[in-house]
Design a protein around this nucleic acid. Structure first.
Length: 764
DNA sequence: GCAGCCTACATTTTT
DNA sequence: TGTAGGCTGC
């Protein structure tokens, strides 16, 4: 037997060896949380608990998979039998088994956010509401928030406070939209992400026999990342654990970063209340094994500013390590170059692999400058998140076919594929079918079956042909595995053919992506871990993937990782760059405007800092292109908030900052130029010159072409455009946010241009 | 019904 | 800056 107990510290051991009864582990960053959780599960199994009777809920499928592997190393193959996965995937599984009880059939579809929003868009249109007032994002947010607090459509309509809220926001009909949305999802035999939790609650509330079955089945319930669970999730676990009361939650209130989607830190307080203070065992893991002292203490200096938090003191016995470096760049592109050179330099000096580095940013849109800079320096990188494989049009198209083949009630899939490839069924006809279906509270498929009652002529024939096609696919479901069905559908639907005939570069890439999807299905079928190999099983696994779950595009793991801070939760890297440290960007202006929760932004910063093991670098830019507009930026208040003793302003890589770092004199004297610096600087200059190679279309811009702000652009001015060359401004029109200029070019004639700063420069 | 142009518009994080 | 949705002309 593996001796894993002796290597643990005292609180870790307590947590691992705690037997029955509620247990709450408050685990500071880097305190060995995953280790404790895996050992605890191993310990339970070794002490006679049947793995089938352990339910472990994690935040991502990847976390679940890793934990399973680690447990397997201790207890062997038995680990495979543990019920482990994300809330959404585990309860989707249970809902499939018990679907009948709540009026669904087990082949229900899972609507992703795009499907939900598209359905809402149709409903708002059908109800003749103004989509400028009823903005889809807002409506969706309201509905999602309600579901996460277990407020169904009728409760929503009958709740005077909610109604008053909507009235004052001048959107009194959100309740009606919600109701219609719920009806349509139900008619479509579809659940959105929130429904997977909401309906599990309904299932357990209305069917005590079913609840009872699972209550007895699960002898132990574990919840990882407890701080990020919402009320709906918490209630499910509470119900499931009500019989044995063997519930173990692990979390860190300081790392709660999902309040925006309903996560509720109060769950941590409720936990004690619900199980009785005297019954709950609380273990605090406060020793950090991951990071240097400087990093741990700098992180502490940030989080100490938050008022709402549990008492806890994270400390480390690790060495001090280097100070945290701050880089100032003049623009977002320069920030990209400086960060890429810094990575290059560290990598060379210390002979480190690429995968020791990560670049963390607040928003996905920030990745561009870093991608460019890394590419130019031939440093391999990968991006987590952003537009993922499964969000690509061609992939969603095929998946919609697969979904509709499995579940013909799926209205959103229907709308996507009914006229794809083009078969002469226009928007008018599709909208008509939707409306009739909604009126009769039937699914679209029922209407399609009797299409001749509603539609005549060419469209009717086309729809009949479509229905026959789907029926022919459906026949295959019981005879063939997911891969065979999917390949047949890709060919017979005409999707592959259409892409194959598109010989453009993009068309080729799309064709390959579809092949790649088919490969993924093949892998799914061939994977012995998957008990069920049906198309439905594959679709479920795919629709609940998280961004962190995306598989490597190739076998090469030695890459710099670029991702949002949210995506970095639970990961660690030797060297971390936190970039875009500017006011309004991080902390995000949006967040401050909409929810005014500076503390959550600060926790996010805390998460980012504590990902670093050895070296942490932060950077900010003084100017940034924001939706094509040049924006002046101030350094983030978070830079000021951090205890300045841990910071080192990098004068090596930029001009002196206006920021007053108030540093001790000895630190300043260190910041003089070095040999490696001149290397970095020349590298930075070299990459600067090779920028924008694609602008040479019909005009070669002047060698020093650098876009200037066109804010002061006026008639009569002489300008240079990156593509059209030199010219004179004839007229400038400002209309709302759009700025247009009529310019007479010397060689390209007169043009009216939507002003794009990146391409235009005022000639002095 | 469809393609292509134009215009207006929205920009946080993700199961 | 990108893109989604509207509009126009076939």
């Amino acid at each position: 037997m593996v001796d894993y107990i002796s290597g643990l510290n005292e609180p870790q051991r307590e947590a691992v060896m705690h037997g029955n009864g509620p247990l709450m582990i408050i685990a500071g960053a880097g305190s060995g949380k995953t280790r404790v959780l895996t050992y605890r599960i191993s310990y339970l199994i070794e002490n006679g608990v049947d793995p089938f009777r352990i339910l472990a809920l994690t935040f991502t499928n990847k976390a679940a998979g890793e934990m399973r592997n680690r447990i397997e190393k201790v207890v062997g193959t038995e680990a495979r039998n543990i019920w482990m996965g994300t809330f959404h995937s585990v309860f989707a599984k249970i809902l499939r088994i018990e679907a009948k009880a709540i009026g669904y059939s087990s082949n229900f579809s899972i609507y992703d956010t795009d499907d939900s929003k598209s359905l809402l868009r149709s409903i708002i249109k059908e109800m003749a509401l103004d989509d400028k007032i009823y903005r889809v994002n807002h409506v969706f947010g309201r509905i999602s928030g309600a579901k996460n607090r277990l407020i169904g459509p009728d409760d929503y309509l009958n709740n005077p406070i909610i109604q008053a809220d909507d009235e004052s926001a001048r959107m009194p009909h959100i309740g009606k939209i919600y109701k219609q949305y719920a009806l349509r999802c139900f008619a479509a035999n579809a659940m959105d992400f929130d429904d997977l939790l909401f309906n599990t609650n309904v299932l357990f509330r209305d069917h005590l026999d079913i609840l009872n079955k699972y209550q007895h089945k699960f002898q132990h319930v574990m919840v990882d990342e407890f701080q990020d669970t919402n009320v709906s999730q918490y209630l499910i676990t509470r119900k499931l654990a009500a019989v044995h009361e063997n519930i173990c939650v692990v979390g860190d209130d300081a790392q709660s970063i999902y309040a925006f989607r309903g996560a509720n830190i109060e769950n941590i307080l409720n936990f004690q209340r619900d199980y009785g203070k005297e019954n709950v065992k609380i273990v605090k893991l406060e020793q950090n094994y991951r990071s240097t002292k400087n990093i741990v203490e700098a992180a502490n200096s940030i989080i100490a500013r938050n008022k709402n938090q549990l008492e806890k003191h994270v400390f480390t016995d690790n060495e001090d390590g280097p100070l945290i470096e701050v880089i100032k760049a003049s623009s977002d592109n320069e920030e990209g170059r400086l960060v890429a050179s810094a990575i290059f330099e560290t990598k060379m000096n210390e002979s480190l692999p690429n995968n020791d580095f990560a670049i963390l940013y607040r928003t996905n849109a920030q990745s561009r400058a870093f991608e460019e800079a890394l590419r130019k320096m031939s440093i391999k990188y990968r991006i987590i998140g952003g537009l993922s494989f499964y969000q690509r049009k061609e992939i969603k198209d095929l998946i919609a076919y697969l979904r509709f083949t499995v579940n013909q009630q799926d209205e959103e899939a229907f709308k996507r594929i009914i006229n794809l490839p083009k078969r002469g069924i226009g928007d008018t006809t599709v909208a008509k079918i939707s409306v009739i279906a909604a009126e009769k509270e039937d699914s679209v498929w029922e209407i399609v079956a009797e299409i001749n009652k509603h539609v005549t002529g060419r469209a009717a024939l086309a729809i009949e042909a479509f229905a026959d096609l789907i029926k022919s696919f459906k026949l295959l479901l019981d005879q063939k595995d997911a891969f065979e069905v999917a390949s047949h559908i890709a060919k017979a639907s005409g999707l592959l053919k259409e892409l194959y005939e598109d010989k453009t570069v993009e068309g080729l890439a799309r064709y390959e992506n579809v092949q790649e999807l088919l490969n993924a299905i093949k892998e799914f079928v061939d994977n012995p871990d998957n008990e069920e190999k049906s198309l439905g099983a594959f679709l479920q696994s795919v629709s609940l993937l998280t961004t962190a779950d995306e598989k490597e595009d190739d076998g090469d793991n030695d890459k710099v990782t670029l991702m949002t801070i949210h995506a970095a939760k639970g990961l660690e890297f030797k060297n971390i760059h936190i970039v875009g440290m500017e006011e309004d960007l991080f902390p995000s202006q949006m967040m401050l405007e909409s929810r005014n929760d500076l503390e959550e932004e600060r926790r996010l910063f805390y998460v980012a800092i504590t990902r670093a093991e050895k070296r942490l670098t932060m950077s900010y830019a003084e100017t940034r292109y924001h939706y094509g507009r040049l924006k002046m930026c101030e350094p983030s208040r978070f830079l000021m908030e951090m205890d300045q003793r841990y910071l080192k302003l990098s004068k090596l890589r930029s001009a002196p900052s206006r920021m007053d770092f108030d540093k001790p004199e000895r630190d300043r004297s260190e910041s003089t130029s070095t040999g490696s610096m001149s290397f970095v600087r020349s590298l930075a200059q070299r990459t600067a010159r090779t920028q924008n190679p694609q602008t040479a279309a019909s005009h070669t811009p002047s060698p020093d072409f650098a876009p200037t702000s066109t804010a002061e652009l006026a008639a009569g001015q002489r300008v240079e455009h990156a593509k059209f060359g030199f010219g004179t401004v004839k007229q400038v029109d400002i209309n709302g946010t759009d700025r247009k200029a009529t310019i007479q070019f010397e060689t390209a004639g007169e043009k009216v241009l939507l002003l794009s700063f990146a391409k235009l420069r005022v000639v002095a």
